[in-house]
Each structure stands twice: as structure tokens, then as C-alpha cells.
């Protein structure tokens, strides 16, 4: 793995290399270099399998972190490529030409996080959420609890007590010894 990282460093600006396990490494690359890095890994380093592509909402940094997980079947190494993109103008180059299933991942990311992949097939078609009119639900600022309270009706009749304050009301109400 070290040699691969060395070779990558010659061509790409990579950072935050973290060997999580003997067979799992993460590294970060700039958005502009990501697709060429991934193509290079696929075509020249035998990382032929796209395990998954997903996003993490780093809302506090106004960024999305995309993670492309690649696998090399010869050395049985997993390599996670992190790419940080702007959260306000979330857009990323598509990799659907490299793997057929990448289009599905990108379609889901568009729907769930609102990250656009221009040129990706059917990227604008709804994938899971038909008729959704709220913000993309996997974003951190989408509050599921609030949404469900506003959208559905809780059945009446439930009430709960906190043992601490309940005991206070029973045993030593304000000012009582």
C-alpha cells in the first residue's frame, strides 16, 4: 500500500492518509483531481471494484465529504478516497463512465443530499422519494423528529415522568424540608 501511496503522491495532491487497518486505507484528494485519481487507480493500480460512493454531511464546515471506496481484488486492499466539496454549491464530476452502478449512487446522492453530478444518467429522476418537497433528507439540518411531528399525528394518551422531578414534587416540593 505504501508504494501505491508513493506513486499517487507523484501525480496527485493527496493528504490525510490514514491506514485504518492493514487492508483499509483512507486518503483525501482535491475535488479537481478526484476523478482522474480514481480513473488512475482503476486502470493502473487494479482497484477495479467500486465498493460504494457516499457522502457525509460536514455541516459545521459547510462541506460535504464524498467517500469513494475502491477495492483491489489482487491485493485485497480497500482504499477510501475522501473528497470535500462545497455544501452550498454541491456539485461533483460524475464517474458513471467508469462503473455502471456509479450512476445509481450519484442519483441517490442527488436525492438524499442534494449533490449534483451533471451528466450522470437519470440523475434528476427521483430514486426513493417520490413527490418529496422538503430539503434533501439526509442533510444534517433535516430534522426527522420535527418532520414526523408535523406530518403525522401522535396517538394521544401518553405521558411520562422524570423520576427526579417526580420525586421532588412528591417528597420535597419547592421550599419544603
Amino acid at each position: 500500500m505504501k508504494e501505491i501511496i508513493q506513486r499517487l503522491k507523484q501525480q496527485f495532491t493527496i493528504s490525510n492518509v490514514n491506514q485504518q487497518r492493514v487492508d483499509l486505507t483512507f486518503l483525501s484528494v482535491k475535488k479537481e483531481q478526484a476523478v482522474s485519481l480514481i480513473s488512475y487507480l482503476r486502470d493502473f493500480e487494479k482497484f477495479s471494484h467500486l465498493v460504494f460512493l457516499t457522502a457525509v454531511d460536514r455541516v459545521e464546515d459547510i462541506q460535504f465529504q464524498l467517500t469513494y471506496m475502491l477495492h483491489n481484488y489482487n491485493t485485497h486492499q480497500d482504499l477510501g478516497i475522501r473528497v470535500l466539496i462545497d455544501r452550498e454549491k454541491a456539485e461533483m464530476a460524475s464517474i458513471h463512465h467508469l462503473w455502471k452502478q456509479a450512476g445509481t449512487y450519484q442519483r441517490e446522492l442527488k436525492e438524499m443530499f442534494g449533490i449534483d453530478f451533471p451528466g450522470s444518467p437519470r440523475v434528476d429522476e427521483s430514486f426513493i422519494l417520490e413527490g418529496w418537497d422538503n430539503i434533501p433528507p439526509m442533510r444534517r439540518d433535516f430534522d426527522t423528529k420535527k418532520y414526523s411531528e408535523e406530518t403525522y399525528f401522535p396517538r394521544p394518551g401518553r405521558e411520562s415522568h422524570d423520576p427526579e422531578s417526580y420525586m421532588k414534587s412528591k417528597l420535597y416540593p419547592e421550599g419544603d424540608a
Partner: peptide, 9 residues
């Protein structure tokens, strides 16, 4: 501690 608060009383 499980933070039940039984001790406070």
C-alpha cells in the same frame, strides 16, 4: 452512573 436522579431526594 445511569443518571436516574434517585439520589437527589
Amino acid at each position: 452512573c445511569v443518571q436516574c436522579g434517585l439520589c437527589i431526594a
